[in-house]
Design a binder for these strands. Structure first.
Length: 172
DNA sequence: CGGTTTTGACCCGCGC
DNA sequence: GCGCGGGTCAAAACCG
């Protein structure tokens, strides 16, 4: 599946606690290419003492529906995928961008479905997939594909709104 | 009422 | 060619 898989960091917008706390940071900028910059203060999230927090690089990903009927088959531009393994009990890890869900599919050998999101910013076709591992349901894999053509949407959302969207997790 | 989510259908690539 | 799995579309439902 992935071409490369190496430990690098942790998703900067979650924590190892029972709830992913949205911590917005303009330093999280996929436009930097591989320059994923994590805030030092995010280090608390790297408390999982194993290699489960990592980045997956996939340089040769097929281009979705570029070849749909009625469309010219374009030379496939290379798009990189960046995947974060995140220990979190919530699926929605707000990264400062606004996403619209456009699909959900059951994944083979996984009891949890995979969700597909697209950046809502006009002209920006960055996508991401969110999937939970069936082995360890506390691990969420978020895969980003493409590069944002715009800066991070500032934190228009207030915290209350975010919590609503997250369906706050209440530990038993 | 406009934006988002849901969900079944559809498309495509790949292996057999 | 066929079936399977993954990815996307698009209409309807939902929601603030």
């Amino acid at each position: 599946m992935e071409d490369y898989c190496f430990p690098v960091g942790v998703h900067p917008f979650s924590s190892s606690s029972s709830m992913a706390v949205p911590q917005f940071s303009s330093s999280f900028n996929l436009n930097e290419g591989l320059g994923l910059i994590f805030q030092p203060k995010m280090e608390e999230a790297v408390q999982v003492g194993d290699d489960r927090n990592r980045i997956i690089l996939d340089g040769k990903h097929k281009e979705g529906d570029q070849n749909r009927i009625g469309k010219k088959p374009k030379p496939k531009p290379k798009r990189h995928k960046y995947a974060f393994h995140t220990r979190s009990r919530v699926d929605i890890l707000d990264d400062g961008y606004r996403w619209r869900k456009y699909g959900q599919k059951a994944v083979k050998n996984n009891v949890f479905p995979r969700s597909y999101y697209r950046c809502t910013h006009s002209g920006c076709d960055v996508k991401k997939q969110v999937q939970r591992l069936s082995k360890d349901d506390e691990i969420v894999v978020t895969t980003y594909e493409g590069i944002h053509t715009h800066p991070v949407e500032k934190c228009t959302d207030n915290f209350e709104h975010i919590l609503k969207k997250m369906h706050i997790y209440v530990p038993p």
